[in-house]
Simulated assay, not measured.
Amino acid sequence: MIATKTKKAPTEGAPVFFIMLRNMLIGLVSTVATTLMGAAAKGDWLIMLVYLRGKDGPDKALPSFLAPSGNGTAEHTVFDQFLESHGMKHLHLFILMGIAGSFIIYYPVGGFWHWYYYVRQRDQAEEWKCQPNKFLSKENEAHAVMLGSFNMVLGGTLSGTIACYIVNGGYSMLYFNLWDYGIVYTVLSTMFVFLLNEWTVYWSHRIMHMPVLYKKIHKWHHRYIQPTAFTASAMHPCEFLLNQCIMAAPMFIFPLHVGSYVGVLLWTYYYGMRDHSGIISESPWPWQQDVMFHDDHHLYFHVNFGMNTKFIDMMYGTVRRKDREYSEDIFYGFGREKAENKAQ
């Protein structure tokens, strides 16, 4: 059958256009909110903020309601003089902003997503949930919130300290002027730091799945077999701090444009939050795995270690295979042959 064109009324296409526009706006708001939530969970939103507005020193980096007045007595206390003499002016204010900001961003956004899916659409879980027949227990939900909150305090403290150090003139390799190293170097270094981050995260994650480290440390995170957005930061504090150091390391090692560094952080935190949501979502990017990839990591334990791509798992043979058996006591990422396959 051949379709023929028909003359449309002037307003016939309008509803479709407005529906598309509405969906685009919803998608944009959702992406921004999820990214902010991911950055807040780790506290690194503050490091990004000071690089965007902190070139002129600690007073400019702080919002006006936090920055002490130059004529105020706060600038002349012994405590402030001590911090300034050690190149950490306003350290306590940066830490306060890091912790408070994380909580202010994280829980309203996370609470909305939790209500929208896990409460409002709980009866339709088969339409949106990776594991539609299984939900976290109330005990594990509360545990994730408490452990994640503790780690956000750690993250806000660490990020506040790093941010304060940087805007007080501390050493880093980030640069602001694109022409300092040129466009080609900026593009290549951005790709390099993205791949380096993925490779480092893969191996640090896989090492955490070695029997001793898994049982002592990483199992804290794997008690959440059905992950949600609130479980993204719920892990052993030592592992949380290790992840923070991995993400912060590039800006002290080699020249990297601030936009590149912030961009990689935003990308990583957006997909890290998305991958822990438990909500079915396919990635539009060929290198970025779908949410089900990491959800399977929680369901099958020792497999699918990558965070931003599955290529490294494919390279080392640690992608989950349907012909293999996986469980919490089968380590090293390769599973084992299923019993029915052995019998054949």
Rank of each mutant, 00 (worst) to 15 (best):
residue 132 P to A: 02
residue 269 Y to T: 10
residue 339 A to N: 13
residue 262 V to D: 06
residue 213 L to E: 01
residue 293 F to Y: 15
residue 246 I to N: 04
residue 78 V to K: 08
residue 4 T to R: 02
residue 116 Y to S: 00
residue 298 H to A: 08
residue 177 N to P: 00
residue 88 M to F: 12
residue 2 I to R: 12
residue 315 M to H: 04
residue 10 P to R: 13
residue 137 S to Y: 03
residue 259 G to H: 04
residue 322 K to M: 10
residue 31 T to M: 09
residue 297 H to R: 07
residue 237 P to Y: 00
residue 207 I to D: 02
residue 26 I to Q: 07
residue 317 G to E: 09
residue 128 W to D: 02
residue 110 G to V: 01
residue 217 I to P: 02
residue 9 A to L: 14
residue 306 G to H: 03
residue 129 K to V: 03
residue 301 F to I: 13
residue 245 C to H: 08
residue 344 Q to L: 12
residue 194 F to Y: 13
residue 210 M to P: 04
residue 41 A to D: 01
residue 240 F to E: 06
residue 93 L to A: 07
residue 51 Y to K: 04
residue 293 F to A: 08
residue 331 F to E: 07
residue 173 M to E: 15
residue 57 G to A: 14
residue 322 K to I: 07
residue 178 L to R: 09
residue 143 H to F: 09
residue 31 T to L: 09
residue 186 T to H: 05
residue 262 V to W: 03
residue 10 P to Y: 11
residue 5 K to V: 13
residue 131 Q to M: 04
residue 287 W to H: 05
residue 22 R to I: 10
residue 57 G to N: 14
residue 45 W to E: 00
residue 327 S to R: 09
residue 343 A to H: 06
residue 291 V to K: 00
residue 251 M to K: 12
residue 89 K to F: 04
residue 40 A to K: 09
residue 284 P to T: 02
residue 105 I to D: 13
residue 242 L to Y: 11
residue 223 R to Y: 05
residue 99 I to E: 02
residue 217 I to V: 15
residue 309 T to S: 15
residue 64 S to E: 10
residue 43 G to T: 07
